[in-house]
């Protein structure tokens, strides 16, 4: 937003959307980080708090949606303004999904906190979540600074998350095959890993939206994909 609008109330409305979105981003980030801390420390109280925070994101998404519809009706936005408003709606729904995924991890913490968890796997998850959180943080920065360049590099890095997820997937399978008593915990951890990988995908979605808002162009269709877990099978002969 270089020049201010002739109608200053219009600028206030756009600023409101962007501020509310940043708040949602902060909450989503916090939820995911807390969910992982809760998982590592088997902290059910913290997990419970994460679960209750999800309501804030649902409310944020609704408010942004309603405000955006109102601004479109009142101002009939064009060009960069229109892209920004439509972008806000899309990003709000991505952030709301991130919150859901964080909440889902927190729920699993409550289910498995009494079970023994392989330390190495939990560390792997921690690393995965750090990457996803960095992506999320940076994409929110890219949004507030309208940086197409930053958005582009975020999308490139999603590959790394996918690769780590695939290797975690293999490890979890191995643990389950070694000892069937691991299956319950490992299955939950597998879903946690999948959730984190999905959070990375949402960060990528947001990066694509930011790129479009900033440039008016869509990113190229091909997106780096390295999640090969769909083709991983456990070989009983091993």
């Amino acid at each position: 937003m270089s020049e201010p609008h002739t109608v200053t109330a219009y600028d206030d409305e756009l600023r409101w959307l962007s501020r509310r979105l940043s708040e949602m981003g902060g909450i989503a980030e916090g939820m995911v980080a807390d969910a992982l801390t809760a998982l590592i420390n088997a902290d059910t109280a913290l997990a419970q708090r994460v679960i209750s925070e999800d309501l804030l994101l649902d409310q944020g998404e609704r408010e942004i949606y309603e405000k955006a519809v109102l601004v479109i009706a009142k101002r009939q936005p064009m060009a960069s303004d229109l892209r920004e408003i439509i972008g806000s709606i899309r990003i709000a729904s991505d952030l709301e999904r991130v919150g859901d995924l964080g909440k889902n991890i927190a729920k699993r913490v409550i289910s498995i906190h009494t079970m023994a968890q392989p330390k190495k796997l939990v560390r792997g998850l921690e690393h995965l979540s750090e990457l996803a959180l960095t992506q999320l943080k940076e994409v929110l920065d890219a949004f507030s600074s309208h940086s197409a360049e930053q958005a582009n590099s975020i999308r490139e890095r999603d590959e790394e998350i996918d690769a780590i997820y695939t290797s975690l997937f293999r490890e979890l399978l191995t643990y389950m095959m070694e000892d069937p008593r691991n299956i319950s915990a490992c299955t939950h951890l597998l879903f946690c890993a999948k959730n984190i990988e999905r959070i990375g995908d949402h960060a990528t979605n947001i990066a694509e939206t930011v790129f479009y808002v900033a440039t008016g162009q869509q990113m190229t269709v091909e997106r780096p994909k390295d999640d090969e877990s769909a083709s991983v099978v456990a070989d009983p002969a091993e």
Partner: peptide, 19 residues
């Protein structure tokens, strides 16, 4: 023109930013 104009003057005019 109305979603992604090339010229900043067009952008400013259609979005209501003209001084």
């Amino acid at each position: 023109i109305f979603t992604n104009p090339d010229d900043p003057r067009t952008q400013d005019y259609i979005t209501g930013r003209f001084g």
